[in-house]
Design a protein around this nucleic acid. Sequence first.
DNA 1: AATGAATGAGTCTTCATTCAT
DNA 2: TATGAATGAAGACTCATTCAT
Lengths: 195, 195, 195, 195
Amino acid sequence: MARNRDENKRKAILQTSKLLFAQKGFFGTAISDIVRETGMTVGTIYTYFSSKDEIVHAIVEEGWSELYSRLERDLGAAVSPEDKLRLLIERFIPEVVKDVDLISILLSEAVTYTRLEEKIERITDLVFSLTRSLAAGNRPLEAFTRQTLRTAIVVIFLGIMSTVRIARASSLGISNRDIVSVVKVLARESLRIDL
Amino acid sequence: MARNRDENKRKAILQTSKLLFAQKGFFGTAISDIVRETGMTVGTIYTYFSSKDEIVHAIVEEGWSELYSRLERDLGAAVSPEDKLRLLIERFIPEVVKDVDLISILLSEAVTYTRLEEKIERITDLVFSLTRSLAAGNRPLEAFTRQTLRTAIVVIFLGIMSTVRIARASSLGISNRDIVSVVKVLARESLRIDL
Amino acid sequence: MARNRDENKRKAILQTSKLLFAQKGFFGTAISDIVRETGMTVGTIYTYFSSKDEIVHAIVEEGWSELYSRLERDLGAAVSPEDKLRLLIERFIPEVVKDVDLISILLSEAVTYTRLEEKIERITDLVFSLTRSLAAGNRPLEAFTRQTLRTAIVVIFLGIMSTVRIARASSLGISNRDIVSVVKVLARESLRIDL
Amino acid sequence: MARNRDENKRKAILQTSKLLFAQKGFFGTAISDIVRETGMTVGTIYTYFSSKDEIVHAIVEEGWSELYSRLERDLGAAVSPEDKLRLLIERFIPEVVKDVDLISILLSEAVTYTRLEEKIERITDLVFSLTRSLAAGNRPLEAFTRQTLRTAIVVIFLGIMSTVRIARASSLGISNRDIVSVVKVLARESLRIDL
DNA sequence: AATGAATGAGTCTTCATTCAT
DNA sequence: TATGAATGAAGACTCATTCAT
C-alpha cells in the first residue's frame, strides 16, 4: 500500500476546524483547540495540513466548490432562463444560507485566505448572464445598465451572506426563510419576474 | 504644569489604528504596529487608551455616532418622506460608503467589540418607518410584509457595506458610485419611488 | 512515540524555582530567571506548569505535604505522648528547619498562594492535642489556658520559622542547632517536661 | 524662606504608603496607587522621595526608631530589672503588636530594604542584658546558655511579629491580647519571674 | 504515519522614573 | 515646587510549528 493517509481523518479535521473557525474566528481558534476537539494530536494535524492557513484554505475551497458544482449541475438540468432563475433562488440560496459556518469563514477576518472576490466574480458572471437572457423586452431589467446589474447582484449576494452571518451571531430576529422571501420579492418587484 | 493630554495625539492614534485594523484586521494588527506607524511609544499609546479593545471601541463608536448624528440632522431638515428617502440614498449612503475603513472594522472579526447588531437595528428601524410612511397606496410596497421589508433593509444595508469592504481589498471593479446607483434603481423599480 | 513528559525536568524546574523564590522572593523572580537558571526555554517551563502561581503552589504543597506526612508516620510509630513530643522536637523541627527555602517561601509575600494559615492550624492542632495529653497533674501546663497554649504553639512555631528565614539571609549568628536547643529548654522549663 | 518642603505632605505619603504596602505588599503596590490614595501627583511623590525603595525605607526606619526610642525612654524611667522587664512585656510588646502595618512591612518580601537583622540584634541585645541581670540565683535562667537565651529572645520576638502579621491576614483566631498573655506565661513559667 | 515535548518569537500590558512646562 | 504625559525596559504568557522518537 502506497499511502496510508486516512481520508476520514482529513475530513474530521476539516469539519471540526470549520465549526471552530466559524464560532471563534480564525485568530480565536488555536491549533490546540482543533487538537482537543478532534481528539487527535498536533502531529497528526500537521501530517494532513502543513499550516493553519492551509486548513482554512481547504475548508473554503472545498466547501465552496462543492456548493458551486451542485449549482452548475442543477442549472444544467433546467432549460428556460426562468426555470434557472427559480432554481437559483429557491434551491441554491437556501442551500448556501444553510451553511452559516462556511459563510462566516468566508466573510471573516481571514478574508486574505479566502479569495472571496474570485467566488463573487464567478457567481456574479453566472447570474448576470442568466439575467441578461431575461432582459429582452423586460422594461425594468433594461433600466439596469450592465454595471448596475452586476453591482446589484454583488450587493444582494453579499447582503444575504452578511445577514446570515450576523443573524447567527446575534439576535437580529431574521430567519433564513425571511432572506429567501426577500430575494423573491426583489426579483418579482424589480425585475417583474414572477417566480 | 506638565504637558497636557494632547487631543491630537489621541486622534492620531485612532486614525492610524483605524487604517491598520481595516487593512490587517484587529488580530492581525499588533500594538507594536500602531507604535511603529504613529511614531509614538507603547507607553504613550497606553496613556491614551487602556487596551487594544478600547481603541477599536473608540474607533467604531466615535466613527459611527458621527455618521449617525449627521444622518439625523439631515433627515430632520427634510420634510416629506420622499425627501427624506432621497437624502438617505443620495447623501447618507455615499458618506457611509466613503468610510471604507470604518466599514471594514465594523464587519471584521472583532464583531464582538463592534456591537454591529445594535447599529443595524437602529438604521433598520429608521429606514423601516420611513418606508412605511410611503406605503399607502403603493402596490409594490404593500407586497412586502413587515418582516420581509425589514429583512430587505438589512440585506441591502449589509450588502452595501460588504461590497464596499470587499471592493477595497480586491479588484471587484465596483465603485461607490455604482453602489449608489443600485440603491436608486432598486428603490425606483421595487418601490416605484422615483428619486 | 514523541518525547515523554520528563518528571526530572519538572523536578528541576521546581528545585530551581524554589531556590530563586527563596532568595529573591516570588515577585523578585522573573520567569526569565527560571529560564536562565534551568537552561530550559520559556515554552518548556510552561509545558510543565501553567503559570508562575502554579509553580509556587507546587513547591509549597509538595514540600509541605512531604514534611507533614513524614511527621505523621513518625508520630504513629511513637507510643507515649512524651515520646511523641520528643520526636516532634528532636526529629521534626530539625527537619523543617533544614528546609530554609521552603520556609522562606511559606513566609514570603506570596502568602496568598501559600495557605500558611491552614498549615499552621494543622500543626497547632496536632501539637495542642499532644500537649493536652501531658497536662494531667502538670502544674505549669495547667497554667496555660487553652487559648494561651494554642497561641504559644503558634508563636513558637512561627518564631522558629521566621528565625531560620532571617538567619539565612543575614548574619544573625544563630544556627539550626541553637533553635532546637531553645525549643527543648522551653519545653523543659515551661512545661516541666524533660526530654 | 529657604525650603518649601511640606512636612505634612511627606507624612501623608508615608502614612498612605505604609497602609498600602502592608495590605497589598511592596510589589503589589504601584506608585500610582499611592498617587491615587494620597490625591497627590507622581511628581509630588518624587519630590519627597527619590524612589519607591526610599519610601519603604523611610517607613521602616522612622517607624522603628520611634518605637525604639519610646522603649528606651520608658526603660530609662524604670529602676529594677524586674520593672524593666515588666514594662517591656506590658507596655512595649502591646505597642509593637498594635502596629501591624509596620510589622507586615518589616517581615514582607521587601526584607531587603528592611534591615530587619539590625533591629532584631538591637532588641535582642537589650533584652538579653536585661535578662542577664536577673539571672543570678535564678535556676531556670541559668539553664539557658548565652546563645540559647539569645536565640530564645529572637525566636519569641519574631514569633510574636509573625503571628500578628499572619493573624491580620487570615482567620487565625488569635488576638493581640492572647499574644501578650503568652509572653507573660512564658516569662513566668520558664524564667520563674512573676509579673 | 503518529506522537507530543520543545521551541522562542511575539503578544499585550505595566510601571518606576524622568523632565519639559 | 508641582505637574502629569512620556518613556521603554521588563513582565507573564501564547501558540504555530518542528522533529526526535
